[in-house]
Design a protein around this nucleic acid. Sequence first.
DNA 1: CAAATTTGACCGGT
DNA 2: ACCGGTCAAATTTG
Length: 206
Amino acid sequence: MRASNGGGKGARIERKATMDDKFLWRKYGQKEIKNSKYPRFYYRCSYKDDHGCPATKQVQQSETNDDTTSPVYDITYFGEHTCRPGRDDAAAELVDGDDESSTREQFVISFASNGGDASVCWPSSGDDSQNNSETSQESCTATDGASGEPILLESTPPAPELPDLMKPMDGCLLDGESLFGTDELIYFHELSAALGLLDRDWGAPV
DNA sequence: CAAATTTGACCGGT
DNA sequence: ACCGGTCAAATTTG
């Protein structure tokens, strides 16, 4: 439970074609996950050593669309950024228009096993992948009890029956079943045209 | 030279 | 006992 995530609640899961964000991260570990084809990377905010930014993130390549096509990474964000990302200072990283400015859709799913109320809503696009969680966090508050059951995420351990799922977003597999305990905020960023605009140097960095 | 990265080992939890 | 996560040290790159 207490993995020094910076809070323990607030796990944002994003599926993008690039693991690079507007923030600076320092890799502090890499481990192979059982049941996963690719290892998982552990990143921590570089400011943790300067300002105590509890923001952490895990990156793992999705085996759904592996090297065959454009590699997609599963990025799980933990904690919030207390440092000053700014829009001009740390923005020096994104000198190249990696992604964004596309038909990306943002889904926000709130879990609450306490009362059993799950709300799903997605704000309009136009925003970058900045830290705007707290803002939209209160934006969607549904207590009408759409479904008393938490959303089931696609499982893919023993899934030999998958001819071809070219769907942009079909299912995000989460090994950690008990990853979400109480209230959880899941931000789902989808990059539909990510495959089309992917022509950077991400083909073979090393 | 400094910083960031790498790999391994250790620890805690389930 | 196993798996997952983190820390530590060593190394590499800029």
